[in-house]
Design a protein around this nucleic acid. Structure first.
Length: 481
RNA sequence: GGGGUAGUAGGGUAGCCUGGUCCAUCCUAGAGCGUUUGGGACGCUUUGACGGCAGUUCGAAUCUGCCCUACCCCA
């Protein structure tokens, strides 16, 4: 099996073999180390953590416009977690329990939060008094724990979600909460826009909504192998939780009323999507916004002119850093080619090559991660780098959209569904019944993901239901992670 | 949840059935020295492992039990 050394040194598995590519890339690009000795728990390498920080900084920037960040405890007492019947039913199989303090059994078992509604809402009951306190929009970025029984996968299916951004809002009316749902969707669209990851928004079927919610809107993307990945959810909680946790406010007429709530979350699956969407056989490809290193400078030093090149490179580094770019000079004593491969694996958007020929010509050689090579005059470097990073991001976005567009097809029969979900998702007419959804799943191993499908590639697929033939509406169907 | 296979250095393998004290081999692995440097350089030197716990034994990578972890198949 070991033919790599001769044919193609150091190559990743082809992206066509997505699973192998993904696993190998995670450690080759130093995102995650999967060798931690507990199932479903993984370690962020410094490089991966830096990527994570940039991604979550973007998310914070968007949320901080009108949300406040806070922090609630990891442990939830059993009686609080069990308060909302539907909610606990949805999670009870996956909860980790803390049962002992030292050697003594605890009087009240404590759950590691699988999500934080039951940690936050008892406090909201204390905090919310008047209509003037509303809307209340708070978020936190924390780790959560779920004892996943299915196949765990780094960044995608975890027993410790390390990077769960969850927002919890409180409103006076159902309609106001509904408007918040739309705002959250818009916010998530903007976030994924910055990551150049195209998304499809849809309304999850009744049986697949968040436990305790009125309805759930989901944000999905289409992975390279055509399977979908849920990378964000927005839930309208109605007044279920406010009744359970007694979150009431006094309205303008002096009446006590139950509040209406929403919650919405994004996890490190956003990073899985980012990595998977753009990467290629050479490694990561990162858009400039989240890239830990945006520009790498490789000095080409030969013999006597070494000092001259070093001085030039130092000047370039200073100038770019002053302009706000995350720039890295690679002055290691290895050949330039090895550096190119190294930084390509790590997805750096732009590489600058600076050697004697460039100095003589008064220029810098610029190569994008997609391999486009050009020269920028040394005296217009910042402008040149700015322009190339912008067009690089635009190109990534186009590539990603082209990928998703070719993976969405319309199917009008079960056979067409079966063919379509082999390597993509499909829009099908569906009558809306659970029975037909189950039949579709049974025959195609693909699930009805949602209705009210919103995508820039939307095609109307209403017509006779592919399962029963009754009049149906457009539904999104696909195999998901 | 049920079944199967496996875990040997940074990564990949052989050895295990048939126990033998220095435990081999490959690599884009690591460390050092020197020569090199416009797409993965080369030479020399060198480091480093039998998943964990217990048992059997004069002696365990090898046999037994339990546990952990990984992968595959089925539900």
């Amino acid at each position: 099996m070991c033919f790599l050394a001769e044919e193609d040194q150091g190559a990743l598995p082809s992206k066509g073999d997505f699973s192998a590519w993904y696993n190998e890339l995670l450690w080759r690009a130093e995102i995650m180390d999967v060798r931690y000795p507990v199932k479903g728990l993984y370690v962020w390498y410094p490089f991966g953590f830096s990527l994570r920080r940039n991604v979550y900084d973007l998310l914070r920037l968007l949320l901080d416009r009108d949300h406040q960040e806070a922090l609630f405890p990891l442990l939830i007492p059993e009686h609080e977690l069990a308060k909302e019947a539907e909610h606990i039913k949805g999670f009870e199989d996956e909860v980790y329990w803390v049962t002992h303090g030292g050697l003594s059994p605890l009087d009240v078992k404590l759950a590691l939060r699988p999500t934080s509604e039951c940690a936050i809402y008892p406090m909201y009951a204390l905090w919310v008094r008047s209509h003037a306190d509303l809307p209340l929009k708070i978020y936190q970025i924390v780790n959560t724990f779920r004892y996943e029984t299915k196949h765990t996968r780094p960044l995608i299916r975890l027993r410790e979600i390390t990077s769960f951004k969850e927002a919890h809002t409180v409103h006076t009316t159902w309609e106001d909460a509904e408007r918040q749902v739309e705002e959250a969707i818009a916010l998530y669209r903007e976030f994924y826009g910055r990551l150049c990851v195209p998304v499809i928004v849809s309304r999850r079927p009744e049986w697949d909504k968040f436990p305790g919610a009125d309805y759930t809107m989901a944000v999905d993307t289409v992975m390279p192998d055509g399977r979908t990945l849920q990378i964000g959810t927005v839930h309208h909680l109605g007044d279920h939780f406010s009744k359970t946790f007694q979150i009431t406010y006094e309205d303008v007429a002096g009446e006590q009323r139950f509040a209406h709530q929403t919650c919405y979350g994004i996890s490190e699956r956003s990073i899985a999507a980012l990595i998977s969407m753009h990467g290629d056989d050479r490694g990561l490809i990162l858009p400039p916004d989240p890239a830990p290193v945006q520009v790498v400078v490789v000095p080409i030093t030969i013999g006597k002119r070494k000092d001259e090149v070093s001085a030039e490179v130092a000047g370039i580094e200073k100038e770019l850093a002053a302009a706000g770019f995350r720039v890295k000079v690679d002055s290691r004593d290895i050949r330039p080619g090895a550096k190119y491969y190294y930084w390509e694996m790590r997805g750096v958007p732009l590489r600058l090559e600076v050697g004697p020929r460039d100095i003589d010509a008064g220029q810098v050689t610029v190569v994008t991660r997609l391999g486009e090579k050009s020269q920028v005059p040394r005296n217009a470097l910042v402008a040149g780098v700015t322009e190339r990073l912008a067009s690089f991001a635009a190109t990534l976005k186009e590539r990603a959209e082209a990928h998703v567009r070719t993976r969405i097809r319309v199917s009008r029969s079960m056979d067409e569904v079966l063919a379509a979900v082999e390597d993509g998702v499909t829009l099908v007419p569906w009558c809306g019944s659970r029975e037909c959804a189950d039949l579709i799943e049974e025959k195609t191993r693909a699930a009805v993901l949602g209705t009210d499908v919103r995508s820039m590639y939307l095609v109307d697929a209403s017509g006779p239901c592919v399962a029963c033939g009754k009049q149906g509406i457009t539904a999104l169907v696909g195999r998901s992670y």
